[in-house]
Write a protein that binds this DNA or RNA. Structure first.
Lengths: 180, 180
DNA sequence: AGGTGCATGTAACAGGTTACATGATTAA
DNA sequence: TTAATCATGTAACCTGTTACATGCACCT
């Protein structure tokens, strides 16, 4: 009865269809300006996954060419909606994976302590760029935003801002210690 | 002259040797209670990488059996120290990769809005578990901690704490809105 | 006429995890 | 004696990225 294991990537696609995205291309564009910061996806994942989901009967695709240009539009089947819901409800430990080379540099910064502040400053600058991107999304998406994406965006902004503040405070503290 | 591309995994190993870790096993143990939260590593990466680094002349290994039990102890060569330094100094955009299924669930929570608060609560509980782990490391490592690892730990604790606070505030806000 | 965007797809590759295999030492 | 810990290693597998290939439509 319950579908045979839905991968997180599969859930993303179901979720994106639920948010009204229609084609693989469409999904990729939207991922790149929304979930990218905590869940990226490439065409190499999306298109094969769409086929797999269709084989499993969770989504349904039909050809809707734009003029002579081929185009496959997908939507959720009832089974697909159910699969999405049961993923949202399920309480199996969700996957979390982080690889952050900047943190690693901070961690190993005793090896080159003169550069520690530079490392932190560089981290801060990257976070500032990220914050600018998130703010741009916030401006751009404006009113028409779903609540889930909105909350996620606010969380991202707050988090990034906190990180920046931490960096600033730590830069100051380290600079003071150096002067002594 | 400059070594032919040092992978982040390679840098981790060099860094760990610089922090005084000696064997592959040793490195793995320490990674698991320190960098794991932002950079994990498995034996399947560590042992082959140690061999590669030795071939490149960045580390030197010698047999130091404990009784009849084989054991290879590594340390940095001068070239290895230089490679570690140049990695720390380099300002090529450091790798950042995050996959967070919990965020994804929040993002798609419009599909099942009755469960949104549960999702946030579950996120908070996971962060609380993480915070407990970090605090345990803080207690346990105590005095003898290098500055880089210490700063990284404080950053992690602060970040996690902020996240928990955000979840609490948001849970309250959503609960209020529901009552209206 | 030409560049950009829409749209689909895949093969080769890179990176990492899991599971397994092996065996000595030490503490209970 | 037996379980846990120390210690090393690899093969099979899985997941994801990059690079490439293709071609129409639309705007200027």
């Amino acid at each position: 009865m319950s579908s045979p294991e839905l991968s997180p990537t599969g859930s993303v696609i179901l979720g994106m269809l639920a948010l009204g995205k229609q084609t693989g291309y469409d999904i990729k564009q939207f991922v790149d300006k929304s979930t990218r910061h905590f869940w990226a996806a490439s065409y190499g994942q999306i298109y094969p996954e769409l086929k797999r989901l269709e084989e499993q009967g969770l989504i349904r695709g039909r050809q809707e060419p734009t003029g002579g240009r081929p185009r496959t539009v997908y939507d959720l089947t009832d089974a697909g909606k159910e699969a999405l819901h049961s993923w949202l409800r399920s309480d199996v430990e969700p996957l979390v994976e982080l690889r952050d080379e900047g943190m690693l540099k901070l961690f190993f910064s005793d090896t080159l302590p003169e550069h520690r502040i530079d490392n932190i400053r560089a981290m801060r600058e990257r976070q500032e760029r990220k914050l600018a991107q998130l703010r741009a999304i916030e401006q751009h998406a404006g009113e028409g935003m779903h609540r889930g994406p909105y909350l996620t965006l606010q969380l991202g902004i707050g988090q990034t801002q906190w990180f920046i503040d931490w960096c600033e405070a730590t830069e100051r503290r380290l600079a003071e210690m150096e002067r002594e």
